[in-house]
């Protein structure tokens, strides 16, 4: 019994068949799950890159402002945040700051963009909806990944990492044409 000491040579007792079978099946399943991750790096279209850089928030904000200055097409009426339309295939910069995503982006469907994402202050959660793509954004780190919008319309970036009392007001926009 499990609440009494185990006496004798319990470590040498034979293991019942169904238990051996279950352990084998479970181990096999663990191996399949292990295999799926490297497999998806070759066969799948949704993998995060390993590329990231350390950068001070000020430097990143400056890079983003330079990027916005080049490609701004209009201002969002409700927030005054610039809407930036970078050429397909180019580098795109965006950062989170209490409590906004800056700037807004206008992208073309089925074109790839090299995104650089960081934070100007606290940690933020980059949750691209309704796609449901979620990234952890950490100040001092510039995350780089290539994003290819495969659908069009208006998309929101909701912050899903608590960043302060106004966190729930933090929404950004990506428009895909």
């Amino acid at each position: 019994m499990s609440i009494f000491p185990a006496k004798g040579v319990w470590w040498n007792e034979p293991v019942e068949k169904s238990e051996v079978l279950w352990v084998s099946i479970a181990f096999l399943w663990a191996m399949i799950m292990f295999f799926m991750m490297p497999y998806w790096h070759f066969a799948g279209e949704q993998n995060l890159s390993n590329e990231a850089y350390k950068i001070s928030p000020d430097a990143f904000v400056e890079k983003t402002e330079n990027f916005a200055a080049k490609y701004t097409v209009r201002e969002d009426a409700a927030t005054g945040i610039p809407v930036v339309a970078p050429p397909a295939g180019s580098d795109v910069y965006i950062f989170g700051r209490t409590f906004e995503w800056w700037p807004m982006l206008e992208l073309e469907q089925d074109k790839s963009y090299r995104f650089h994402i960081s934070s100007a202050d606290y940690m933020h959660g980059f949750s691209l909806l309704p796609e449901n793509i979620n990234l952890q954004i950490i100040p001092d780190y510039e995350m780089v990944l290539t994003i290819t919008p495969t659908s069009s319309g208006e998309f929101s970036i909701v912050c899903n990492e608590f960043c302060g009392i106004g966190h729930h007001n933090m929404v950004g926009k990506i428009f895909v044409k």
């Binding site: 799950m33 799926m36 991750m37 998806w40 799948g44 949704q46 993998n47 995060l48 959660g125 949750s127 449901n132 793509i133 979620n134 990234l135 952890q136 899903n160 990492e161």
Partner: peptide
């Protein structure tokens, strides 16, 4: 806890 699947769940 699967590397890529986490993308569609993290912090939701």
């Amino acid at each position: 806890g699967t590397e890529q699947l986490n993308i569609i769940m993290h912090n939701t």
